[in-house]
């Protein structure tokens, strides 16, 4: 089913990623900036500071944040592909539209996972978190699955976007709400009922919850570990991935891979 094409798409994204030094550096530095500034500020007002150091509590959320930025930004490259014409060239290859969506989502999964593992290797020792073997494996699964889910939804978002100009909108209306409603910075249970319901629509919330199961198990009793069932997290993340891929597939080929904007410039 186009395994070589999927591989080609993943390799291309990987090569592009390696060449974008700025993107690599900022994605690796971002969680530490949050750890220093948000960590210092919230630690003082954090309700659970007798039970758990806020920086430890934040660690799974920061990893979730790296997943989201890593996978989502990788998936959004579909928009630049459309502008640069590369998408049309991919569309004229003898592969199905779903193969393209899968390739893009797997590339995003790879980039999200690699960046998050690199950050975890420094962040966890820094805050003094030493996961068990089981915990580490579960964390790895959580990182891969949340990268897949956010990557797939990112491909859907990108396939539906007209141009990269909507990018600021994506940051304000997608990335930040996803982050604040994910349990990355405070337990979801503390949110009001309306916002609490919204968290159930947030893929990152399940990813962060899974990471809390993996990394904060000792604090579950104090209310700072995972709040949902592990199985629910897994099913939800896979579900988001399926929805993203199924939605993106027909959108990718729209207008033969040309934006109306790009078309107007030419005419």
């Amino acid at each position: 089913m186009g395994a070589r094409a999927v591989y080609g798409i993943v390799v291309r994204e990987w090569l592009r990623f390696l060449r974008q030094r700025g993107r690599v550096l900022s994605s690796l530095a971002r969680p530490f900036v949050w750890l220093i500034f948000a960590g210092a500020g919230f630690a003082a007002v954090f309700a659970g500071r007798d039970a758990i150091d806020y920086r430890v509590y934040m660690a799974p959320g920061l990893l979730g944040m790296v997943v989201m930025f890593g996978a989502l930004l990788a998936a959004l490259s579909t928009v630049t592909d459309r502008d640069a014409g590369v998408l049309r060239m991919v569309l004229v290859a003898p592969i199905r539209r779903s193969t393209i969506a899968i390739g893009k989502a797997l590339a995003a999964t790879l980039l999200g996972t690699v960046q998050t593992l690199a950050v975890a290797a420094v962040l966890l020792p820094l805050v003094g978190l030493r996961p068990t073997w089981d915990g580490a494996l579960l964390a790895l699964a959580g990182i891969v699955l949340s990268s897949l889910a956010t990557g797939s939804l990112g491909v859907l978002l990108a396939a539906g976007m007209r141009s990269i100009e909507n990018f600021a909108g994506v940051m304000n209306f997608v990335v930040f709400p996803m982050l604040f409603l994910s349990g990355a910075l405070y337990p979801i249970g503390h949110l009001g009922p309306v916002l609490h319901v919204l968290t159930y629509l947030n893929p990152l919330a399940y990813g962060v919850d899974l990471l809390k199961h993996a990394l904060l198990a000792p604090w579950t009793g104090a209310g700072y570990g995972g709040e949902l069932r592990v199985a629910l997290d897994v099913v939800a993340l896979v579900g988001f991935a399926v929805v993203g891929l199924a939605g993106a597939t027909p959108l990718l080929a729209r207008e033969g891979g040309v934006t109306r904007a790009a078309f107007r410039e030419r005419a």
Partner: peptide
């Protein structure tokens, strides 16, 4: 009509990308 190469990849990387897409 307009080039559809990936400007960030090298010449041979562009061709390899196409080779994989065409299986």
């Amino acid at each position: 009509q307009e080039t559809t190469l990936d400007r960030d990849l090298t010449v041979e990387e562009n061709l390899r990308f196409a080779a994989r897409l065409w299986d």
